[in-house]
């Protein structure tokens, strides 16, 4: 087949699947939360309540798209799109299989880290442009949380990079032919997972939107589809982190019997469900606890992991 055409098909396919999955996650999350809380969740609209997503979409599209008169209008409109843009761009480097990958960048991981740093602007600008003290507090929290968790997020991946000897995600997957990196890099996996949860602002690290203290944090003033974009952006982030974990630590598409696509989807779905389980089970820490935990525990642990991995890799080379 024409390689350009193939690329376009892959691109459109990934976009559609990822966006579809993100909206499907609304249903999945509500059903799973309900299951773990001994309830049913949405089960009225369509089979198993699957069409609930459609109902929600119709509702959210027909809501009044309101911009508060005191808001900074252009930034207010622009902010929700940043999170969508950055997260969707990051999907370009995820190798779903050896064929289904939009681009195999040789600095793939760095690209991901850069994009996730940019994603913070969405929340910070959204909180700033709302011109509302709760939103601003949410935005500030997001900024400081991202800042402190991004530091060890990048560093926790460096062990993997050292073992694979490449920043390219495809090379990392191919280096896991014989052993998933979760075994030598278990600490790295745990640290990256925690950082990932903080990065996507999911519970228990959803302090930027802590509804019990900040109304809805950075998106207090948002309604309609602009709120929906923050929401879909968050779910896209969950899918992204789950896909990255399965690629970086669980051998990506590699696996016996089943075709590669099924393996990557299964692994990603497993981590998505784990994200939801975290939300179902864990309470939200206080903000100062979050910060001190990040700097006093996570960062030193990551540095230790980095040093040990480096030493072992050097020793093995000798």
């Amino acid at each position: 087949m024409n390689p350009v055409l193939l690329k376009i098909i892959v691109l459109v396919g990934i976009l559609l699947v990822v966006l579809g999955l993100a909206s499907g996650l609304i249903w999945l999350e509500r059903r799973l939360l309900a299951l773990w809380q001994d309830r049913y969740g949405p089960n009225r609209v369509g089979p198993f309540g699957l069409l609930q997503v459609m109902a929600d979409m119709i509702k959210i599209f027909f809501k009044e798209d309101w911009i508060p008169p005191f808001a900074d209008k252009w930034v207010f409109v622009f902010a929700p799109s940043i999170v969508m843009i950055t997260v969707l761009l990051t999907f370009a480097i995820i190798p779903f299989t050896s064929v289904i990958q939009i681009t195999d960048m040789n600095v793939g991981i760095l690209f991901f880290l850069g994009m996730s740093s940019l994603g913070v602007y969405s929340v910070v600008l959204g909180g700033w442009a709302s011109n509302n003290k709760y939103s601003l507090l949410g935005g500030m929290r997001a900024a400081s949380q991202m800042l402190s968790y991004e530091v060890f997020m990048g560093l926790s991946l460096m062990g993997t990079v050292m073992l694979a000897g490449s920043f390219s995600l495809r090379a990392i997957v191919e280096a896991q032919q014989h052993m998933w990196f979760v075994i030598p890099q278990f600490l790295g996996f745990v640290l990256f997972f925690i950082a990932g949860v903080a990065e996507t602002r999911r519970l228990p690290f959803d302090l930027p939107e802590a509804e019990s203290e900040l109304v809805a944090g950075f998106h207090s003033e948002y309604s309609g589809m602009k709120f929906g974009m923050f929401f879909v952006g968050e779910y896209l982030g969950v899918i992204l982190i789950s896909a990255l974990i399965s690629v970086l630590f669980f051998g990506g598409w590699l696996g016996p019997v089943l075709p590669p696509v099924v393996w990557i989807i299964l692994k990603t779905l497993f981590f998505i469900c784990f994200f939801i389980l975290l939300r179902a089970a864990l309470p939200r820490p206080r903000f100062d606890q979050l910060m001190s935990w990040g700097w006093k525990w996570m960062l030193p642990l990551t540095l230790a992991n980095l040093a040990v991995t480096g030493a072992v890799v050097v020793a093995m080379r000798r």
Partner: peptide, 8 residues
């Protein structure tokens, strides 16, 4: 607590 919630 993760385990207990999962067992629900």
């Amino acid at each position: 607590s993760l385990w207990l919630v999962l067992m629900h």
